[in-house]
């Protein structure tokens, strides 16, 4: 026998999972929200989605070419960032602004910090916050095609107006393309949970904390507390952005702390801050704290106690 054999250290088999498969699952999970966004806000949203996804992919491709890094566009994480960003933008945003946001997310937030796995903060969230500050994009939210309203539910809630819970749940309200339809986001979130891409701790603790604190601050009015968790970017944030592997803790207790912390900050901003929405800022802040949370919550070593 003179065939050459491979030699390597065990294990000799692999589960077959890969970054691109994980990212593909996230994209699939975002599809219901994407479709709902297009239905609610019309075809202009398709333009925004196309521009951010393409801009994200192209900028990552060019960056890797320039710095002579191994090409990483194929892992689909740029697609996820582009899609998430689009779903966080209003449908009527000028397309050049959307493109700038995507390039900012990929180049400044991700690639300059060392590419996938090394970014400190979530690219899509940071780009959303950047655009909010730079262009004021979020304050000029788009509205459903047949809507009579002219303010987002959180603004209306802040002004003390009542909001229909059904509209909130189905997303027939003003806001960003993918953040309004809680039903679609819930379907996507459950898909991620079933596929074990994410675990329950962050979404549940995040949304649960917002609900409980809103309940306390609203004087135990259940429908107002429900409106709080169904409006704004909470669902998309809790299921898709706060659960980003790179910028959230990997240990179960770390995830619980991360979720509760994000919930508290969200409520503080919503009730006491200048901005009507606090989810992005909350996640961003927790992203920054993430390395410390990880450090505080290691898994217990089995029999780790020295003899």
């Amino acid at each position: 026998m003179d065939t050459k054999l491979h030699l390597s250290v065990s294990p000799h088999i692999h589960c077959g999972n890969s970054t691109s498969k994980v990212m593909l699952d996230v994209i699939i999970a975002l599809l219901p929200a994407t479709v709902a966004g297009v239905i609610i806000f019309g075809f202009s949203s398709i333009g925004v989605i196309a521009v951010t996804v393409l801009a994200a992919m192209i900028s990552e491709f060019i960056f890797n070419k320039i710095v002579k890094k191994k090409q990483t566009v194929g892992d689909l994480s740029a697609v996820v960032t582009g899609l998430l960003l689009a779903l966080n933008l209003p449908a009527n945003i000028p397309l050049w602004q959307a493109a700038v946001g995507a390039v900012f997310a990929i180049i400044i937030v991700k690639c300059l910090f060392g590419g996938i796995g090394n970014n400190l903060v979530n690219p899509a969230i940071t780009a959303r916050v950047f655009m909010l500050v730079a262009f004021g994009s979020m304050t000029k939210a788009a509205f459903p095609i047949d809507s009579a309203s002219s303010a987002t539910p959180l603004v209306e809630l802040a002004e003390g107006k009542a909001v229909s819970l059904t509209d909130l749940f189905l997303g027939n309200i003003g806001g960003a393309i993918g953040e309004t339809c809680a039903l679609a986001l819930l379907i996507g979130g459950i898909y991620l949970l079933v596929r074990k891409v994410i675990t329950w701790q962050i979404p549940l603790c995040f949304i649960g904390t917002v609900f409980v604190l809103s309940l306390l601050l609203e004087g135990f009015d259940f429908s107002l507390a429900l409106s709080q968790i169904l409006s704004g970017g909470l669902f998309i944030g809790a299921f898709f952005m706060a659960t980003d592997y790179v910028t959230s803790p990997s240990t179960p207790w770390g995830k619980v702390i991360f979720g509760i912390g994000a919930g508290i900050v969200t409520v503080l901003i919503r009730f006491y801050g200048n901005y009507p929405e606090g989810v992005s800022f909350a996640i961003l802040l927790m992203n920054v704290l993430n390395p410390y949370i990880e450090k505080w919550t290691p898994r217990k070593l089995f029999g780790g106690e020295k003899k």
């Binding site: 390597s8 994980v22 990483t72 990997s250 070593l301």
Partner: peptide
């Protein structure tokens, strides 16, 4: 075909290694 394993790509900090370790090693 079975002998070929996929090439390593950058760590995405998913935590699967810690969470699947029988002894909680990181």
């Amino acid at each position: 075909k079975e002998a070929k394993l996929p090439e390593p790509t950058p760590c995405i900090k998913c935590g699967a290694c810690v969470n699947h370790c029988p002894f909680g090693i990181n």
